[in-house]
């Protein structure tokens, strides 16, 4: 039994989530191999060599892979997939994009958003926006699955033995999709999906100006990432990648401060596993209070400036 972990990169660097993927894979017996795909991967490769539990690093380095097209990445994974019993990748826009292609071509089912790996055949995953959990058994020759990163604690430590490195000979890649542009929001803040503290705003912020004028200073004080409800994103208060919830990011920070967010089930899906939840809402009956550790009922236009100034 050998597991293939497909790591996500960002700007040619390894994302922290790889350590959670390794953690998720530990109950599966056998070796762990790591695949990185992209172009100009020397730096990422050096980072991979530090990772514990990895016996082999496979590098797919090609100029045509720099746009992370799902069609191409699936082809790369398929060229080695038959050697593996399990294929793990993060349940992010990256992993969700190509892994189902791999599964379909291998004629095996895929598991999405796995939150628990019990052994090589038993897994748990949330359904209905996390309102329910299903425990499943799969006995396929290859099991591809996307992993909900926030459900696993990162493995610590460094590689003691050193992994072997294999440069992949590139399969023929399809050319049916081209990236025209990429607009990533540059931010000096911690990233939403890995931040220890998240300040998140909803419709209650009432305007884009207010959203930023009130929440940015608070986030600065707490070294926090900014998040938002769908309503806040739809209304243009915040960009789309701020969205937390069933269809946005699913996170588990140490502290989540929900400001002017009612707590719809689709929003809770994204943050209810935070260690500590604070709700600031003027409505004492808002459902967000039912999941929060500390509720402050009040007008956010007064509470937030006061909180920011007293921190």
């Amino acid at each position: 039994m050998t597991t293939l972990i497909v790591a996500e990169l960002e700007k040619n660097q390894l994302k922290e989530s790889v350590r959670q993927l390794i953690a998720a894979s530990t109950p599966i017996p056998g070796e762990k191999h790591l695949l990185i795909m992209g172009h100009q991967l020397d730096k990422a490769l050096a980072e991979c060599q530090l990772l514990p539990h990895i016996s082999k690093i496979i590098v797919a380095d090609d100029a045509s892979l720099s746009d992370e097209s799902a069609e191409k990445m699936a082809e790369v994974v398929l060229s080695i997939a038959e050697q593996y019993s399990h294929i793990l990748t993060p349940a992010t826009a990256f992993g969700k994009n190509f892994l189902p292609r791999v599964a379909a071509r291998l004629d095996v089912p895929q598991l999405s958003e796995v939150i628990q790996v019990k052994d090589a055949e038993h897994f748990s995953r949330p359904i209905y926006a996390g309102s329910l959990i299903t425990d499943v058994k799969v006995t396929e020759k290859i099991i591809p699955m996307t992993i909900r990163i926030s459900a696993f604690d990162a493995v610590q430590g460094r590689n003691a033995n050193g992994a072997t490195i294999e440069k992949l000979s590139m399969p023929t890649l399809p050319n049916i999709s081209q990236r025209v542009s990429l607009n990533l929001h540059d931010s000096t803040r911690p990233q939403l999906d890995s931040a220890k503290v998240v300040v998140s705003g909803g419709r209650g912020l009432s305007s884009q100006e207010n959203f930023h004028a009130l929440l940015e200073p608070l986030a600065d004080k707490l070294n926090a990432a900014l998040g938002a409800s769908r309503a806040a994103v739809d209304l243009g208060y915040a960009p789309n990648d701020y969205q937390v919830g069933q269809t946005g990011k699913i996170i588990a920070p140490n502290l989540y401060i929900a400001v002017g967010i009612s707590g719809a089930i689709q929003h809770l899906a994204g943050m209810k596993n935070a260690k500590c939840i604070v709700a600031i809402n003027k409505d004492p009956d808002a459902p967000i209070h039912q999941v929060s550790d500390y509720s402050l009922v009040g007008d956010l236009n007064e509470v937030i400036p006061e909180l920011t100034s007293k921190l």
Partner: peptide, 20 residues
């Protein structure tokens, strides 16, 4: 091809306290 062994509710979050 995926056998569902069971469906359950996640552990509930105990609701917290009001601060004034």
């Amino acid at each position: 091809r995926v056998t569902i062994l069971g469906v359950r509710e996640p552990d509930p979050r105990s609701s917290g306290v009001r601060v004034d």
